[in-house]
Computed example of a mutant assay.
Amino acid sequence: MTIIVRELGSEVRADLEGFAAVRHSALPFFLITRDSLAYDLAHMHADARYRPLVAEEDGEIIGTAQVGLLHESPEPGQAFVNVYVHPEHTHRGAGTQLVRAAEEYLAAQGATRLLAWVLDEPGNRVFAEAHGYRASRSAHFLRLDLANRALPPLGTPPPGVELRPAADFADDPRPVFELDAETVADEPSDAGAELTDYEAWLDETWRHPLIDHELTTVAVVDGRPAAFSLARTDGATRYASGMTGTARAFRGRGLAKLAKNDSLHRARAAGYTEAFTGNDTGNEPMLAINKWFGYEVCATEVRYVRELG
């Protein structure tokens, strides 16, 4: 059987559904839908040179690759290549062909350092190392059973603190952008990121179809957003934390925990039954908060790095 690697058809319904299905099968704790994938393709920043690839066998999509430049990194030449093959179609060469096509494309775009997330399983790690990648940091996927696990009781915000849904900032979301930019800058990472383009953030984050502005909670102190918990949902049963963080001047006061607890309670009331999140394994403060909520590690992934040239 012949495997063909090609670019994803951005307006081909079967391609979008096939890509999303493979990702869901290989990475069930990460939210992706046909509509969110189509939105990403239409709104990804031009500097990312984003080019998703698919591996097709007898007309069926069995593998995917997210490929592009980390244009928000202060260090030029950083790129990402994340390859996933449907669990029922591994060991057929699809992964190797996807990696080869992705590397050729990124090299042509000027990439000098490739970063890939790999599920922490022996076969996956052997595959990455056989292709010249070396292990770096790691991160956990965590799951919370919202339907059956008791959440910590809702606490009363301390004096001067107000919990508000992100929808309250619909007329002017810039304060939320500034808070997000500050927290992203301090997030553990191999490449780092600097959010400086407000219009791009509006397209890629604020208006993203998975973002739920009513379930996203912002802790406001004296009129200023100080902490937040960004909610992403599939519109059915699955909820995920896109980012939870606190501005530097307000850290150590439990505001992120307060915001996330509020968001989780409202998500459960809205009918969501599973909550997912992810944390760098070195991010002990956030891991402790999630353990307090009742999250349990459901998988671990390792960042692999390859230098080109």
Rank of each mutant, 00 (worst) to 15 (best):
Ile3Cys: 05
Ile4Met: 09
Arg6Gly: 10
Val12His: 10
Val12Ile: 15
Glu17Leu: 14
Gly18Thr: 07
Phe19Asn: 01
Ala20Pro: 12
Ala20Arg: 04
Ala21Trp: 04
Leu27Arg: 13
Pro28Cys: 00
Phe29Leu: 00
Arg34Asp: 07
Asp35Ser: 15
Ser36Ile: 04
Ser36His: 08
Ser36Pro: 11
Ala38Thr: 09
Tyr39Val: 06
Ala42Met: 06
Ala46Met: 06
Arg51Asp: 07
Ala55Phe: 07
Glu56Val: 15
Glu56Asp: 11
Glu57Gly: 05
Gly59Glu: 04
Ile62Cys: 01
Leu70Lys: 12
Ser73His: 08
Ser73Tyr: 03
Glu75Asp: 14
Glu75Lys: 11
Glu75Pro: 02
Pro76Val: 10
Gln78Ile: 09
Val83Leu: 07
His86Phe: 05
His86Cys: 02
His89Asp: 06
His91Ile: 00
Ala94Met: 09
Glu104Lys: 04
Ala108Glu: 14
Thr112Ile: 05
Leu114His: 05
Leu115Val: 14
Leu119Glu: 15
Glu121Lys: 14
Asn124Pro: 02
Asn124Ile: 00
Ala128Phe: 10
His131Phe: 14
Tyr133Trp: 11
His140Val: 14
Phe141Cys: 11
Phe141Thr: 11
Leu144His: 11
Leu144Thr: 10
Leu144Asn: 08
Leu146Glu: 03
Ala147Gln: 13
Asn148Ala: 13
Asn148His: 15
Pro153Tyr: 01
Gly155Lys: 13
Val161Arg: 05
Arg164Met: 13
Asp168Ile: 06
Phe169Thr: 10
Phe169Trp: 14
Ala170Thr: 15
Ala170Ser: 15
Asp171Tyr: 02
Pro173Ala: 01
Arg174Ile: 12
Pro175Gln: 04
Pro175Trp: 06
Val176Ala: 01
Val176Gly: 01
Val176His: 03
Val176Asn: 01
Ala181Tyr: 08
Ala181Val: 08
Thr183Trp: 04
Asp186Val: 03
Glu187Cys: 08
Glu187Met: 12
Gly192Tyr: 07
Asp197Trp: 03
Asp197Ser: 06
Trp201His: 06
Thr205Ser: 12
Arg207Cys: 10
His208Asn: 11
Pro209Arg: 02
Ile211Asn: 15
Glu214Asn: 07
Ala219Asn: 13
Arg224Lys: 13
Ser229Ile: 03
Ala231Gly: 05
Ala231Phe: 03
Ala236Gln: 13
Met243Lys: 03
Met243Leu: 15
Met243Pro: 00
Thr246Cys: 13
Thr246Ala: 04
Thr246Gly: 07
Ala247Tyr: 08
Ala247Cys: 11
Ala249Trp: 15
Phe250Pro: 08
Arg253Lys: 14
Gly254Pro: 12
Leu255Phe: 12
Lys260Ala: 01
Asn261Gly: 15
Ser263Pro: 06
His265Asp: 00
Arg268Ile: 02
Arg268Lys: 14
Arg268Trp: 02
Gly271Ser: 02
Tyr272Pro: 01
Thr273Gly: 00
Phe276Gly: 00
Thr277Glu: 07
Asp280Phe: 04
Thr281Gly: 04
Thr281Glu: 08
Thr281Leu: 13
Asn283Glu: 06
Pro285Asn: 00
Pro285Trp: 02
Leu287Thr: 06
Trp292Gly: 12
Phe293Pro: 06
Gly294Ser: 02
Tyr295Lys: 03
Ala299Thr: 10
Thr300Asp: 00
Tyr304Cys: 09
Val305Asp: 08
Glu307His: 13
